[in-house]
Amino acid sequence: MLKLNNISKTFNPGTVNEKRALNGVTLHLAPGDFVTVVGSNGAGKSTLFHAIAGVFYVDRGSVVLDGEDITFKPEYKRSRELGRLFQDPMKGTAPHMTIEENLALAYLRTAKHQHAYFSRTGKGDRKFFRDQLAKLDMGLEDRMKQPVGLLSGGQRQALTLLMATMVPPKILLLDEHTAALDPGTAEKVLNITQEVVAEHKITTMMVTHNMNQALELGSRTLMMDGGNIVLDVQGEERAGLTVKDLLEKFKARVGENLDNDRILLS
């Protein structure tokens, strides 16, 4: 589904602040893969996501999504096939617009609506939005006319997840999307994530700081360090792995302990 061929990115080249953020990353994801990504501070996890989403173009290498070379496709065009959630729950929704209006915007991604500039939200659309919201089980379906700014962080993140997956994308990028939520809400959003991903068999990548989560969720785990993937486990090898094993493997590969000030070991 997704192929990264030897991609590199250097920020501020030729200055004292030069930073090789991605250093020849190669990665192939099969359709339906659910990959968890862990790594130390500044390992390049978010940069990798930005490269896939097209926030910047990579210096070298190519990005291929479902057979299409998207290396130089602008960010907004990639968004048609790519869903994204950020750590900050405020980032994914427009606060002064109502829930219904936010959903209508997300719905723009469908082929039917891409060029229907002057179409308005109809009764059918509204019913569809209502049903989708009801699935979140947060009572949002009765608040469709309220501005999103009134919702809690967890509700906003759940809404963003709905907006990103309402039209199932080819790939879903989750950048610590539950890290800013309280434990109860985080679990709920995570459960919804799993349901949605399983339902549509969406190829998913998720950055997390919770090592247990990294092993329990999904089908494959990547560890990153210094702008590269240093560990890639899946299948049986992954099934028997504990957090301790994972950290030891990391130390064996990189030669030092995993250094991350926000890491959760249990």
């Binding site: 960010e75 950020f86 405020m90 980032k91 606060p95 002064h96 915007l105 907006m163």
Partner: peptide, 19 residues
């Protein structure tokens, strides 16, 4: 709606396929 969202949250707009 796209125009309103642009003034409200430009990050979100880029992430929902609007230029």
């Amino acid at each position: 709606l796209s125009i309103r969202a642009t003034g409200d949250n430009v990050d979100m707009v880029r992430a929902s396929s609007i230029n």
